[in-house]
Amino acid sequence: MDDGLSPARDTIEVTFTYERALWRRAMTGWWQSVIPPEPFIKRAITWAVIWFGLLIVTLGIAAFDLTPFYTVAGLVGAGVMVSSFAYLQRTRMGRFWDNVGRHWDRAGPTHVRFDATGLEIRDDVSERRLTWAAIDAVKAVKGGTVFRSGISMLVVPDEALPDGVSPTDFRALVTGWRAQ
């Protein structure tokens, strides 16, 4: 970052507009900053146990002279329920993003100024000032950086960063400010 030509930055200013796809990803990142995903090996073991359990049940059924197709029936039932929930969740979140998007149509572009004391977030309808103590988590997502304060979320798209500041540089700066 300090290449000898430009002095070390003590502020970063960005301006950006709402972008549904990035906000969607940011929401996932936001959630993962609350509940980190289980490591791959743990998930693999969990699924292995589930399938093994199903096998045991099937063998158990067979021991009572019943057809193993009952396990298939169980899987069909589970599949129907999983797809219903997936469908509900999709439409639910679709409404959520519609509602959120309508707000940004009115709020216009967001300007954020970061410095050692905190963040200043401004748009056409609001003004927020947060100290770094109000930021609970900072998380990198594809195309942006997510800041979480309680349950509220701020997304800074990588494209909005000033020339010569990579997303990694930006997050390093933020880490430094938060540590102060």
Binding site: A73, G74, L75, V76, G77, A78
Partner: peptide, 8 residues
């Protein structure tokens, strides 16, 4: 049917 119900 009970199998399907259990899955659900």
């Amino acid at each position: 049917m009970a199998g399907i119900g259990t899955g659900l």
